[in-house]
């Protein structure tokens, strides 16, 4: 049951234990689509983080005032508003980045993680707690995108954040910047985290 107390779990839940990408497997569309370079992954992660933070805060603030029957519509309007804001801001910051991210900025509105957080969490807890949780979730999402983006960029282009790592004779693994590469790398990370989790559980079981 959700109470109003803020614990370290409020924050760390989203980063590790319930990581939206690696544990809950939410918002897979941007995760697979825009992680072909680190900078795209970072921009997408930060954009999602911003939308998540502001919508969680607002939803939590007005949670006692919204009739239950219209809450989903209200949440979506709030989320869509912030997504539109992000859309304009990114265009204003860099058109190249905007073109690279394509339709996925607008599609943040359809990221089930954000509506899910608003409905299942932010609408039930006070603003401070909602904000901290959203920060954890958003960071968890950003970190996950960076995990994918960096591996795909290093293998697929031989660069990291645009810096050449291996010299010009490096053979790029072209499949890694293509959509299948997203699945391969995501699978690899899921395998790693699942293995770590299993090992931890085994250690706990033996120490008891």
């Amino acid at each position: 049951m959700l109470d109003d107390k803020i614990t370290s779990h409020t924050f760390w839940e989203g980063v590790w234990e319930n990581n939206p990408v690696f544990v809950m497997l939410l918002g897979m569309c941007p995760v697979l689509a825009v992680t072909n370079s680190t900078i795209n992954a970072l921009a997408m992660g930060l954009a999602t983080l911003f939308v998540l933070l502001s919508s969680s805060l607002l939803v939590s603030l007005i949670r006692n005032w919204i009739p239950k029957q219209t809450r989903i519509a209200v949440f979506i309007i709030i989320i869509a508003t912030f997504v539109t804001v992000v859309d304009y801001v990114i265009q204003a910051i860099s058109l190249d980045l905007y073109n690279a991210l394509g339709a996925f900025i607008q599609l943040i509105v359809a990221n089930c993680m954000i509506l899910g957080r608003a409905e299942a969490y932010a609408s039930k807890v006070p603003p401070a707690k909602a904000l901290i949780n959203a920060l954890g979730m958003g960071l968890g999402f950003t970190i996950a995108l960076l995990c994918l983006g960096s591996v795909r960029e290093i293998l697929g282009s031989g660069t990291l954040l645009g810096f050449d790592l291996f010299g010009e004779n490096y053979q790029q693994w072209i499949v890694m910047i293509l959509p299948p590469g997203g699945f391969f790398v995501l699978g690899g990370w899921l395998l790693l985290f699942e293995w770590l989790r299993e090992r931890k559980e085994q250690q706990e079981a033996t120490s008891e």
């Binding site: 053979q171 693994w173 072209i174 499949v175 299948p180």
Partner: peptide
């Protein structure tokens, strides 16, 4: 198929 997609030139 993997190397075909990864190293299409080679």
């Amino acid at each position: 198929a993997f190397v075909q997609a990864a190293f299409p030139v080679a």
